[in-house]
Design a protein around this nucleic acid. Structure first.
Length: 225
DNA sequence: GCCCAGGTGGGTA
DNA sequence: TACCCACATGGG
């Protein structure tokens, strides 16, 4: 199917954009900070991630070499606000080891790789799953790799646009096959989904559908397949 | 007290 | 493949 701006996926995007305006993500100062944040935000609210990132900055360890040199226990203590701090300290070290070995410790050096190749390599790193990897690809490198998260799954299931138990790659393909392959669009779309999800769709609505469905006037069609 | 937060890895059947 | 659980804590 040819990606189009006329489909339901794009229509939902326009509704969200109208409701919340441009989000201009990712909230970070450097590409490296985006990657660190992508790991720290796993199953954690951004507010807590911010505290952890500030602690790392204050301690001067928000860099690849510094993370490699630091002790796991020391990193864990700093990132305590982001939850799961022991496993996340290991994840930061695993990522730093990978980046050091493969790309000289520079996020920018990953740009020489094709997206599919880089995605596969990042997924092979312990602690980096599809959402974390796609966040790095999209927000640190500007690659058009759609990020699927719990909000995405919840909202689009309630809208009836995706299956009840669609797997990550199926949801990702739904967006990438129904939208123009533009990083800027994916960037705003995921950010808008998170904004909507945390502000409105956090609790399960009594009607069982996302409030977006009301915004759409209940006229959304379920796409084929 | 209960539920959830921008997941992921490992174990089991 | 499909579940379950561990990781871990604070705020609504």
């Amino acid at each position: 199917m040819k990606p189009t701006r006329g489909g339901e996926a794009y229509r939902v995007y326009r509704l969200l954009y109208k409701a919340y305006g441009p989000q201009r993500w990712w909230p970070a100062e450097t590409d490296y900070e985006v990657c660190v944040g992508a790991i720290l935000t796993q199953s954690t609210s951004w507010r807590n991630v911010e505290k952890a990132v500030l602690n790392m900055k204050a301690a001067g360890i928000l860099g690849n070499d510094a993370i490699l040199e630091a002790k796991s226990a020391g990193i864990a203590r700093l990132i305590r606000p982001s939850l799961y701090y022991n496993v996340k300290a290991r994840k930061l070290k695993e990522f730093a080891g990978f980046l050091g070995r493969e790309y000289g410790g520079k996020v920018g050096n990953m740009r020489r790789e094709r997206t599919a190749t880089l995605r596969a390599k990042l997924l092979s790193v312990w602690g980096l799953g599809p959402e974390t990897v796609d966040s790095m690809l999209l927000y640190a490198l500007g690659r058009p790799s759609f990020v699927v998260d719990a909000y995405t799954r919840r909202i689009f299931r309630r809208l009836g646009l995706t299956g009840e138990d669609a797997r990550y790659d199926v949801l990702k393909a739904y967006f990438e096959n129904h939208l123009p392959r533009k990083a800027g669009l994916y960037n705003e779309y995921h950010a808008l989904i998170v904004e909507h999800g945390k502000s409105v769709c956090r609790t399960k609505p009594k009607c069982g559908v996302c409030c977006l469905r009301r915004m759409c006037g209940f006229n959304l069609k379920v796409p084929d397949g």
